[in-house]
Amino acid sequence: MFKKNKLSVLAAILSCIMFIFSGCNGTGGTTANNKTQSKPKVVVSFNAMREFASAIGKDKIDITTIIPNGTEPHDFEPTVKDLKTLSNANVFVYSGLGMESWKDKIINSVGNKNLIVVDASKGISPIKNTANDEIKEHGQYDPHVWISLKNAQIESKNIKDALVKADSINKDFYEKNYINFSNELNDLYNEYNKKFATVTNKNFVTGHAAFAYLCRDYGLKQNSVEGIFAEGEPSPKKLEELVNYCKQDNIKTIFVEDMVSSKVSDTLAKEVGAKVEKIYTIESKEDNKNYIQSMKSNLEMIYNSLK
């Protein structure tokens, strides 16, 4: 989450180093007229975008992730190194809808006129935030669009189109990989669409409210210990409501995410006689799983909790 003081610090850093990059332009992508060009340099904001870009670009691209694994994207602040990396990139991929609040400042500051900028969420129907404080602080939309197999198809297509633009020689390679990845997403979606249709209970509880798009895919409903942006522990009133919710809906599993404290979730689980299980937001690389593996694990865990 960017506070006002963080924005001020970033602005100061940018103003001090802009001259470093003023003469630095992107190297441009590989084209039919430049067959000796090196691999396109693709910079992505965080792990989920890396998963999509890697699935399509594979060994034809040189990929760098700005936000390190284990770092909460909502709280991230770009560094001078990140700015220099972007100044030499051919493609920059971000997820959008407020997930990377810093992206406009660094894009405008690096002076890379040849940079292909990809808003991976373009074309996705966003879910609006409902809490006034979250709208004021972060914007009007829930940014966790990638935790949805349907949205993953859209985001990966946007990335594929950018790679084709940057490296037209390998167009057929990128197109083929996108089709294969899209088919994997479809197969996984269809498998669990059938499974979720067999359960009457549609409610589950997570550490923070990051799964709204997954819920939309399958007609499920999440309740959470923390809000969309995982900011702070719930009030005693909220915790009491969660206890009642879990008891009324026979919740037997409380899901927790790697980068959100499990303290309150553990307390809640103990109070209602539930178990605590790990679920993936895919913001960071976890347990050496790729996107398909992480989503399959999520879906299977949720499905089992609803049976």
Rank of each mutant, 00 (worst) to 15 (best):
F2S: 06
L7W: 14
A12E: 13
L14H: 01
T30Q: 12
A32Y: 13
K35T: 08
V42H: 06
V44M: 03
V44C: 05
A48D: 08
A48E: 04
R50H: 05
E51Q: 13
F52V: 03
I56R: 07
I56W: 06
K58N: 03
I63T: 05
T64E: 13
T65C: 07
P68A: 00
N69C: 08
P73R: 01
P73L: 02
E77G: 00
E77Q: 04
L83T: 03
S87T: 07
A89T: 06
V91S: 11
S95Y: 03
M99D: 00
N112W: 04
N114S: 06
N114A: 11
A120K: 05
S121D: 02
G123L: 12
I127A: 01
N132D: 15
D133W: 11
D133Q: 12
H144T: 05
K150C: 11
Q153P: 10
I154L: 07
E155S: 05
D161N: 15
N170E: 10
F173H: 10
F173D: 06
E175H: 08
E175P: 07
N177P: 14
N177A: 04
N180K: 14
N180C: 05
E184C: 01
N186Q: 12
N186E: 12
L188S: 09
F196E: 11
T198H: 03
V199D: 06
G207W: 07
G219K: 11
Q222V: 01
I228Y: 03
A230C: 14
E231V: 09
E233Q: 10
K237P: 08
K237T: 15
L239R: 01
L239G: 02
E240L: 14
N244R: 07
Y245A: 01
Q248K: 15
I251F: 07
I251C: 02
M259Q: 13
M259H: 08
V264M: 10
V264T: 14
V264R: 04
D266A: 03
E283H: 02
D287Y: 09
D287N: 15
Y291T: 00
I292G: 03
Q293S: 13
M295K: 03
N298W: 12
N298A: 10
N298E: 11
L299Y: 02
S305T: 00
K307I: 15
